[in-house]
Nucleic acid binder design. Structure first.
Lengths: 339, 339
DNA sequence: TTTAATTTCCAAAACGTTTTGGAAAACAAT
DNA sequence: ATTGTTTTCCAAAACGTTTTGGAAATTAAA
């Protein structure tokens, strides 16, 4: 079924059918309803190729998945699926196409964006892995392609984005531990070049300051994404050996895995000898007992908000954003200390 | 840059440029080379919308990701990314488009396939989650759309597929454990309605038979994909309480996680008190020590083979297939028993 | 009632390709 | 030199839409 045949059935012109389906005001309400009825009846939907070609534009969202990161950091994959899941829900309900590309290297990533824009001619992009002064931003702005960042860069931001509320998260965790009488709290972070890590540290530091607790250098470490055993050994030496520390915050599931390994080795029982609270933790909990108390964010909502921003009729404001609120899930890994 | 402008630069007709790029024999070798040179110079690539429209066909691969499965079974996500990774490598080198759809429910999955075929008009599909007498198979065959199965159904198969060599895998594991003097080997599987689970059981049973070991009912259990703690408790009661068992095979990473939880609870040290070998295990190893000896398959190759079959010039034979060979990665969870 | 404004419709052009059905040119056979 | 083949090219039609620039029909205003 194509528009010509449908128009014949309706005894209307092709133009009217097209415009009726498009919701233009120059077709009366009664005929529009009839058009839609027939379209449903004959299971018609416009050929996207013809449509894109004729309208000289697309209604397509482009998204690039950096496999190089995800294959090496398998513990991060769940976040990705959740975000995509959230996007796809919204995408299905709106009527937009969705093209995904995969990049095994950073060079391929750049190529993938080029291809999306120049060949596929997408008009919407969800940008990920944002760098400071990211050239993609200028490129997209110049070409007037709508985009939102998943995550954001430090400093002044002149594009819309969705992100976790990282600073609130560590603040919330600190309050939670503080309420349970922990005062010597270790924070295992990753390199602050990752903006989320920087923000999480800020939340940690600000809480200390607000509560007049002195920041102890030895309570803070940053681990690299590398061999899990190495991570574990660093944690064992620098954190577990320090007997004053009563609780550990893990900024990533990756470091939580390392911490668990380290605790097993050092024969410290989590939830008894030492408290542990981690970001995310939906994979480690399949294995670890007791299950870890964790701070989580709804990344599905994050994905759907991203699409919402992109599809909002009004011109995107460069300062629109969405912050996912954190929530603590209590499980068995945090001990309440006696006063 | 479009074909018209390119033709002007070349002082050739549009037809000749199109045919030259398409590799037709009715354009001379010299002009063809010139056309390609210019196309590169002016960074021309055909508008896929126009191309699809004009040729009344596409060169597009469709793929549906069943999120409903992956969100509930996070330990399975790594396999997916690897497979996709393998596909995308091949896809980038061939010149085909790739459309992915996401399904949050089985109904959405069906809809997604419909949409791929009727609206997006893909001409290639990678089918996943195959069921016995899967209606999609007949549908695709009727519509003459090339497809390969990722995984396969039991019994007679009349379509091309790629899959793991599940039967060989358990056979290999059994031989490995047997060589280390294990004779009482437990096998934790999932429901045999999953074909891979059925095949893995066959490998286990055949090895026993071949080596004249009696199959003990109490050494085989099947666990459902449900709460990890429940899985752990089943394993503890049915397997760990049975002191004759010296080694456990985990058919999925999911059950490995349960087994680890169970061992921790029962205070059995893996690699010392009991041996454990698992399928895959690339996530659990971030957390568990000692790291688990595992049997792995290269799913990247699986993905790229799928594309290879789809893009082979010759008509696909219905009996072409690819089996990924298993490999055992020795780590620290299997003990060699004294004779 | 006539004119002006508004509503509702449509024919034709355009989008950027591929394909069809030759035509012209070059070469080969007689 | 003529005829037949083969090679190399091209004009025009087609693909299924959207959009443009009115025209006809209806309603409102004078």
């Amino acid at each position: 079924m194509n528009i010509k045949k449908l128009a014949e059935k309706l005894e209307l012109s092709i133009t009217t059918v097209s415009r009726g389906l498009g919701g233009y005001s120059d077709v009366s309400e009664t005929t529009r309803k009839k058009i839609i009825k027939f379209a449903k009846k004959y299971n018609y939907s416009p050929n996207p190729n013809a449509s894109n070609l004729a309208s000289r534009k697309t209604n397509t969202l482009g998204f690039v998945i950096p496999l190089y990161g995800l294959n090496s950091n398998k513990l991060n994959q769940a976040s990705f699926f959740e975000f995509i899941s959230g996007m796809s829900n919204k995408i299905n309900s709106e009527n937009i196409q969705f093209i995904m590309k995969f990049a095994n290297t950073i060079e391929e990533e750049q190529k993938a964006y080029d291809n999306l824009i120049k060949v596929e001619k997408v008009n919407k992009v969800v940008l990920h892995n944002l760098k400071k002064n990211d050239p993609r931003i200028k490129f997209l702005q110049k070409n007037k392609i709508k985009f939102v960042g998943w995550g954001r860069t430090q400093g002044r931001i002149n594009y819309p984005w969705v992100d976790l509320d990282n600073e609130s998260s560590t603040n919330l965790i600190m309050q939670y531990l503080f309420d349970r009488n922990h005062r010597n709290i270790a924070f295992i972070n990753v390199d602050e070049k990752y903006n989320f890590a920087y923000q999480r540290k800020q939340g940690y530091l600000k809480f200390l300051k607000k509560n007049k607790i002195k920041f102890k250098k030895e309570n803070y470490i940053s681990v690299a994404y590398e061999d899990p055993d190495q991570v574990a050994s660093v944690i064992e030496k620098k954190i577990l050996k320090n007997s004053k520390i009563t609780a550990i915050i893990c900024s990533t599931e990756y470091s939580a895995a390392g911490a668990i390994k380290a605790c097993n080795k050092a024969n410290k029982k989590i939830g008894i000898d030492i408290s542990l609270i981690t970001f995310d933790g939906n994979v480690v909990n399949f294995i670890t007992s007791p299950s870890l108390t964790a701070i989580i964010h709804d990344r599905k909502v994050l994905g759907s908000k991203a699409i919402e921003i992109l599809t909002s009729e009004t011109k995107i404001k460069n300062n629109s954003y969405y912050l996912a609120k954190p929530e603590i899930i209590e499980r068995g890994s945090v001990l309440t200390l006696k006063k």
